[in-house]
């Protein structure tokens, strides 16, 4: 097992705090005049921080995100960070909470997956296991190289994003990605009128647009406000660890425990997918060994789930 880092000795490594702003800070996020979610007594009013640092109240309907500034900030990334994810395959019970949370956050159709849980079998003699597959956020990304208009790009914090205001829909990046991590809006996305009128958020890729690419964003909008990605926080089985390679620390989305990334990978035989292709993924996997549950086929879900969950459900 990985060594736990005691909270006292490493409080500065606490993942959530290190992301700068916490939710307590009145929801004011940056000096760029951008908005962030926050709850006030009156649902209509929100707090924003002006460029000179004052926190002011204004109506939600009056607040507009500046598209250009959001685009610029979205392309920059968060300074000093290098985001990584570790997926512990021994824990994945194929619950698919990650997929649901992701599809909800990014307004995806049921057949569209930024993260897809795949049933894998390494050889005929071994059993199968489930492997969540987000974008690998490669350090040598084959997809961004081929984009003719720089619509998809890698930020300095390691996140690979897509700008659907610029994408021309040539789908070269889909052809180039060996992990099949990218999807395309083949027809009009399912969104309400409200969502359609929303200012485009490059860090959430919402609203989705017909004729453009979408992909896993490591929930860059969540990272911006110091939260874990949607899939990571949605998982109930402790599959996901997420954090910063520069700090060598990752936090578990279920237990909120923070450990050293290097020890976690070292102790558990961490690996990456298709390493022979030289893409240098930022997503690591821990092997599916020592699973303490059994998969049973669930007719209703038309998929496998672990027997305990199935019993509880029954």
């Amino acid at each position: 097992m990985s060594k736990k880092i005691t909270p006292g000795a490493t409080s500065r490594r606490n993942f959530l705090k290190r992301f700068g702003v916490t939710l307590g800070a009145a929801g004011a996020v940056t000096s760029l005049g951008l908005l962030s979610a926050c709850t006030t007594d009156d649902e209509e009013m929100i707090s924003v921080m002006t460029t000179d640092g004052k926190v002011v109240q204004m109506k939600r309907s009056e607040a507009k995100v500046d598209l250009k500034e959001a685009q610029e900030r979205g392309r920059e990334g968060i300074a000093g960070k290098k985001f990584v994810m570790v997926i512990d395959l021994a824990k994945c019970k194929n619950d698919r909470k990650c997929m649901t949370a992701c599809q909800g956050a990014h307004h995806l159709k049921p057949e569209q997956h930024h993260i897809n849980v795949l049933q894998m079998q390494n050889n005929e003699r071994s059993g199968f296991y489930f492997q969540p597959k987000p974008c690998m956020h490669c350090d040598n990304p084959p997809c961004t190289k081929v984009c003719p208009v720089d619509a998809t790009f890698k930020r300095k914090d390691g996140v690979v994003l897509i700008d659907n205001e610029r994408c021309i829909g040539c789908r070269f990046c889909i052809a180039a990605c060996p992990y099949s991590a990218r999807i395309f809006n083949w027809s009009e996305p399912d969104h309400s009128q409200d969502q359609e009128n929303q200012t485009y958020d490059i860090e959430l890729n919402v609203p989705q647009k017909k004729g453009t690419i979408s992909k896993c964003l490591f929930s860059a909008d969540q990272l911006r406000i110091g939260k874990l990605p949607y899939c990571v926080s949605a998982c109930e089985n402790g599959v996901y660890w997420f954090g910063d390679a520069n700090e060598d620390a990752v936090t578990n989305g279920t237990s909120m425990e923070t450990v050293r990334l290097s020890s976690l990978l070292d102790d558990n035989g961490g690996y990456t997918l298709l390493p022979e292709l030289g893409t240098k993924p930022s997503v690591y996997y821990l092997p599916p060994k020592g699973r303490l549950f059994k998969y049973e086929y669930d007719e209703e879900k038309d998929n496998w789930m672990d027997s305990q969950t199935k019993e509880e459900k029954a």
Partner: peptide
């Protein structure tokens, strides 16, 4: 074949020579 033929001029505005 383009998903967004209306943006074909992006090739001129944002053309990226590594592609």
């Amino acid at each position: 074949d383009m998903g967004r033929p209306d943006r074909v001029l992006n090739l001129l505005f944002y053309g990226r020579f590594s592609s």
